[in-house]
Computed example of a mutant assay.
Amino acid sequence: MVKYGLLAKLEAKPGKEQEVATLLGGALPLAEQEAQTRTWYAFRTGPASFGIFDTFDDENGRQAHLQGEIAKALMNNADRLLASPPQIDRIDLLASKH
């Protein structure tokens, strides 16, 4: 069972919503290249609200993801696209169904 996760919450600046959606959708190939990332989801919860949820088998995988290409792309574009810094929460999974 995967036991570790990350939940990132993102709020787009006014007028930047489509660019955030495009950035997140375009990150899928990067996630697919991360051998230690078990699941990766990019989602939208409102007109300007977005998120990323991903899971890992161990802390090493989670840490590798935080230092990976998706995190770099997000942080390199945060000032231009996001209304505030991303809120990134570390999650310890208690149960899951696949």
Rank of each mutant, 00 (worst) to 15 (best):
L93E: 01
A78E: 09
Q67Y: 02
E34Q: 07
D58P: 09
T39F: 03
P85E: 10
M1F: 05
D57F: 06
K72G: 01
K97R: 14
F56N: 03
Y4E: 11
A78S: 15
T55Y: 02
L93I: 14
E11H: 12
L81H: 06
L7A: 12
G26F: 05
G15Y: 00
E59F: 06
L24A: 04
E17H: 07
L30T: 07
A12M: 04
G61P: 12
W40E: 00
P29N: 05
T55L: 01
W40H: 15
A12Y: 00
K72T: 10
L82W: 00
K72L: 03
K72S: 04
K16V: 00
D54W: 01
L66Y: 02
L74C: 01
L23Y: 03
R62E: 05
A83T: 11
Y41I: 09
P86G: 12
R80W: 02
L94E: 07
F56E: 03
V2T: 13
R38F: 07
N76W: 00
F56A: 01
A95I: 05
Q87G: 06
I88G: 00
L82Y: 01
D89L: 12
R80N: 06
S49C: 12
N77H: 06
T55C: 02
E32T: 05
F56Y: 15
E11V: 15
A35E: 14
A12L: 01
A31Y: 07
S49N: 13
A35V: 08
K72C: 00
A42F: 05
M1R: 09
P14N: 06
N60T: 15
P29G: 07
A27V: 08
A73I: 01
H98R: 13
R44Q: 15
R90A: 13
E19C: 02
H65F: 06
N60C: 08
L94P: 01
I52W: 00
G25L: 13
N76R: 08
L24T: 05
M75H: 10
E59W: 07
T22N: 12
E34T: 03
D79L: 10
N76S: 14
R44G: 10
A27Y: 00
G25T: 13
I88H: 00
R44S: 14
I91D: 02
A35I: 09
A42P: 03
P85Y: 06
L66F: 03
L24K: 05
I52Y: 00
T45S: 15
E17R: 09
A95D: 06
R90Y: 11
V2E: 10
S49F: 10
I91L: 14
F43S: 12
T39I: 00
P29V: 08
L23H: 04
S84C: 04
P86D: 12
